[in-house]
């Protein structure tokens, strides 16, 4: 499990519009990398390009390479569906499937692909995933209740359980705490610390304290102006980024002077 990612010279387009330009960044295995930057700087778009989710929007495409353990995600014979099985994702707003129970939600990755498995095997996956997501003790008595009945923070952890139930190599998180209250947020941040042992995690966040708390590496994105493409300004160890950034824009953003 847990693989490293190497992005080189990635351009992301929507139709003719260049949204993100020339990103080159390595992401180490078993680490947490945080993307920060002002709204509209392309950090979420870039995150989505790491498991080809941005292709869901019509006209979206990329140039450049994204190598996961040496394999190019954008090679011609690469199936985006398989890419997404390898690289899981957690979204901004918790989105459990409303027609499924808690257990079914955890197994959704398997169930939706009609993978056959024994009951005991399924139960194992449910328990292991929910334990990893720190939700097991709260829901073990109501696994057959609808997932939409949980609180927002529980729903988000359910979504994390769902994402790791398929045992992906990488876990992408797109502002996973922005719709949650502070207590649920801190539960999820603790969870990210735990998950780091097994997964490569990339997280987009608007909250700089959160980036400082959870990440090993931080990357700062910015855009020159409205209608300009977003760029990666700099990246480095989180401590260095927050104490002694190289680019003045990074420093200004981290100190809260804009964004």
């Amino acid at each position: 499990m847990a693989k490293s990612i190497d992005v080189s010279d990635l351009n992301i387009y929507y139709g003719d519009f260049l949204a993100v330009e020339g990103v080159t960044i390595p992401v180490a295995a078993r680490s947490v990398t945080a993307f920060i930057g002002p709204s509209g700087c392309g950090k979420s778009t870039f995150l989505r390009s790491l498991n080809r989710m941005h292709e869901v929007i019509r006209g979206a495409r990329v140039d450049g390479k994204v190598l996961v353990d040496g394999q190019d995600l954008y090679a011609d014979d690469m199936d985006p569906v398989n890419v997404r099985r390898m690289i899981g994702m957690v979204f901004q707003r918790p989105n459990p499937f409303p027609t499924m129970s808690i257990a079914e939600n955890v197994l959704a990755g398997q169930k939706l692909n009609s993978k056959r498995m024994k009951k005991s095997e399924a139960d194992d996956i449910v328990e292991r995933s929910l334990r990893s997501a720190g939700l097991w003790n709260e829901v073990k008595d109501r696994l057959d209740r609808p997932g939409s009945g949980l609180s927002g923070g529980q729903q988000q952890r359910l979504c994390i359980a769902r994402a790791i139930a398929t045992q992906p190599e990488v876990l992408l998180m797109d502002e996973p705490c922005s719709a949650l209250d502070p207590i649920s947020t801190s539960v999820i941040e603790d969870l990210i610390h735990e998950l780091k042992k097994d997964y490569t995690i990339v997280i987009v966040t608007h909250n700089m304290q959160q980036a400082a708390r959870v990440s090993d590496t931080t990357a700062f994105f910015n855009l020159a102006g409205v209608g300009q493409p977003g760029r990666l300004i700099e990246h480095g160890p989180t401590e260095k980024m927050f104490s002694n950034p190289e680019d003045p824009a990074t420093e200004a953003y981290i100190q809260g002077r804009f964004g």
Partner: peptide, 27 residues
């Protein structure tokens, strides 16, 4: 049907037609 459900399914590596049959239509 909220788009977020479709995205959640795609992100699990589910092909589009299965997403429609198993997530969109049941919802």
């Amino acid at each position: 049907v909220p788009n977020e459900l479709r995205e959640a399914s795609y992100a699990l590596g589910v092909p589009k037609w299965r997403t429609i049959v198993k997530v969109v239509l049941p919802t």
